[in-house]
C-alpha cells in the first residue's frame, strides 16, 4: 500500500472520540480501511480514549446488573454460536464501509449524471454533512469549485491531480475553504472518488460555515 496523502490528526482524534458527522465518519473509516498508517494513528488516539476511561470516576452498577448481563449472554449463547462475520459482498474498488452504505458493490451504485460525463451518487447519511461517490471520466476536470467549508476527497479508483498534488487510490485530500482547486482526473483511467462536504451549521468541532456543495446539489 502506498498511500501518500493522509488524514489530519484533528480528524483522527475527532473520529476516535466519536464527534464527527456520519458522512465524515464514513470517509474516515473508508480511508483507514486502505491505510495502515492512519489505522495505527487512530489506534493511538483510541488509546487516549482508553486512558480517559481508566481515569474516569466510577459509578456503581445497579444491584441486578451482573445478573441481567449474564442472563443476556446466556440467552444469546444458547441461540446462536458466535461466528465470525463475513462480508458477503467483496469489491475490488469499494472497501467494506462503503459496501454497507451502497448495499452492494460498484454495480449497485445508482449514478446520476452531473454533466460533462461526470456522475455522482449521494449516499444515505445524516444531514449534517454529505457523502457522494463521484465518477470522473479520464482526463476530465471538475470545474473550479471554491467551496465553503471542509471538503474531503478520497480516491477509490484511478487518480486525480490538482494544486494539492497527485492523488491515487487510498489518498485523501483534506481541503479547507481557502483551497481553490481544480481536480483533473488522470488520463490513464476513469476516476472514482468518495467526496464529503460539511453542510451548514452542526459540524461540531470545526468552525460552522455555510456550505456550498458543488455540482449543483
Amino acid at each position: 500500500m502506498t498511500v501518500k496523502h493522509h488524514l489530519t490528526d484533528e480528524l483522527l482524534m475527532a473520529y476516535s472520540a466519536g464527534d464527527l458527522p456520519e458522512a465524515v465518519n464514513l470517509i474516515v473509516a473508508t480511508h483507514i480501511s486502505l491505510c495502515d498508517e492512519c489505522r495505527a494513528a487512530l489506534g493511538s488516539y483510541d488509546a487516549v480514549g482508553g486512558a480517559v476511561l481508566d481515569t474516569c470516576d466510577t459509578v456503581e452498577m445497579s444491584k441486578n446488573s451482573l445478573n441481567s448481563v449474564l442472563d443476556m449472554i446466556h440467552a444469546q449463547d444458547s441461540q446462536v454460536q458466535d461466528k465470525p462475520v463475513s462480508t458477503t459482498v467483496q469489491d475490488d474498488v469499494l472497501p467494506a464501509p462503503l459496501i454497507d452504505y451502497i448495499g452492494g458493490g460498484l454495480d449497485s451504485v445508482r449514478w446520476r449524471s452531473a454533466g460533462m460525463g461526470v456522475k455522482q451518487a449521494i449516499l444515505p447519511t445524516s444531514k449534517d454533512a454529505t457523502a457522494r461517490l463521484l465518477y470522473i471520466p479520464a482526463g476530465t476536470a471538475i470545474p473550479d469549485h471554491g467551496h465553503h467549508g471542509l471538503e474531503l476527497t478520497l480516491v477509490l479508483k484511478g487518480a486525480f491531480q490538482d494544486e494539492g498534488g497527485y492523488f491515487g487510490r487510498g489518498d485523501i485530500e483534506v481541503a479547507s475553504e481557502d483551497l481553490n482547486h481544480t481536480p483533473v482526473a488522470d488520463i490513464s483511467e476513469d476516476c472514482i472518488c468518495l467526496a464529503v462536504t460539511d453542510a451548514p451549521l452542526k459540524f461540531k468541532g470545526l468552525v460552522p460555515r455555510i456550505a456550498q456543495p458543488f455540482l449543483g446539489i
Binding site: D9, A17, G18, D19, A47, V48, V52, G205
Partner: peptide, 23 residues
C-alpha cells in the same frame, strides 16, 4: 474532547501525550 463536549481542533496537534511510540 473524549466525553464529546469540546472541539478537537485546538488540541489534536498538541495533546502533550507521547503518541508516537504507541503508534
Amino acid at each position: 474532547a473524549y466525553f464529546g463536549d469540546l472541539s478537537h481542533s485546538e488540541i489534536a496537534d498538541q495533546t502533550g501525550l507521547p503518541l508516537g511510540t504507541i503508534k
